[in-house]
Design a protein around this nucleic acid. Sequence first.
DNA 1: GGTAGACCTGGACGC
DNA 2: GCGTCCAGGTCTACC
Length: 344
Amino acid sequence: MAGRAGTTLTIPVPADYVMRRDLCSYGYFLLAPSHWEPATETYTHVLDLGGGAATVDITQARRGRKAGTPLTVRADRALSRTEVAQARAQITRMLRLDEEAAVVRHFHAVDPRWKKSGRGRLMRSPTFFEDVIKTVTSCNVTWPSTVNMNRRLCEALGAKAPGGGHAFPSAAKIARTRATTLRTRCSVGYRDARIVELARLFTLPPSRGGISVAWFEDPGTPDDAIHEALLELPGIGPYAAANIMQLLGRYSRLPLDTESIRHGKTILGYTGTDRHIMKRMHEHFRPFGGHAFRSYWFELWCFYEQKRGPAWTWERETTGKSFTAALLREEVAADGAAGAGRRR
DNA sequence: GGTAGACCTGGACGC
DNA sequence: GCGTCCAGGTCTACC
């Protein structure tokens, strides 16, 4: 990016915010168009702005040694005033900078295990649409396939930034794309028609049956109504609906999958059928109420970090591709499990 | 309400 | 290099 006449911004963050901890807190930081560079602790993302795509490099001075240090954002081209506002809004959403420190403190009061490390924030995508499609690409596949699908979606359909990177494709772009094109160029398999239909719903006004992003993102909309509406969408089942809910900042439901079963068996020591284990998992995390997902997720995330080191040291093409339930099961078996790491 | 099978891709494995 | 098997969540048909 050196030598380009780009725009530089400073973005204030909550007093507890540590970028390398709070950004590298959910797998989407490893998915295109995101790129995390462990050596320099630089987070690069290609944003789709009003005037086209722009690559932004985001850094936090002092590299996590002091919480609350503002972020420096460098774009690879000059941004208009409108685009600066759009970039700020998308970065704020992606890093959840609008979640007040008091909310994180409340989580720590409910589940004190994470107070010392300060964990509490989870990253997500810059838009609700991207979160929904990323969730669909994570269903019924192993993680390396999810990584590939997102990379190919961006390369095939995403707007190109001056630096050569591609943004995540817009809903309008995917809605105009043939399902067979998605399948052949992006390897999304049978999800092709579902992704196109989802994109079409995002482009339609709510009055014509389209998705109202404002309604989904309105804190006043009841959880149950959101959950019900998500289950109506193509390609969205119980797991995906619960996952999208946490991406919307609603943490009371658990997106349980095969990885959760592994966690229930090997870490929490549950036995029995998968169905029984899932029931026990829901009961286990119910006491955390509106923070249940955070408690569940950080248990899982810490398990990964015990295996692979701190998430901020992971690289997409190596560590980032090594997560599969089967692989982790093998490693746990090799370790002898022994119930180590049981935390409650 | 519960269950079985199809849907695809890509990695692992055996030959 | 090729064929086979398997993992993964959603959807549909059926009981």
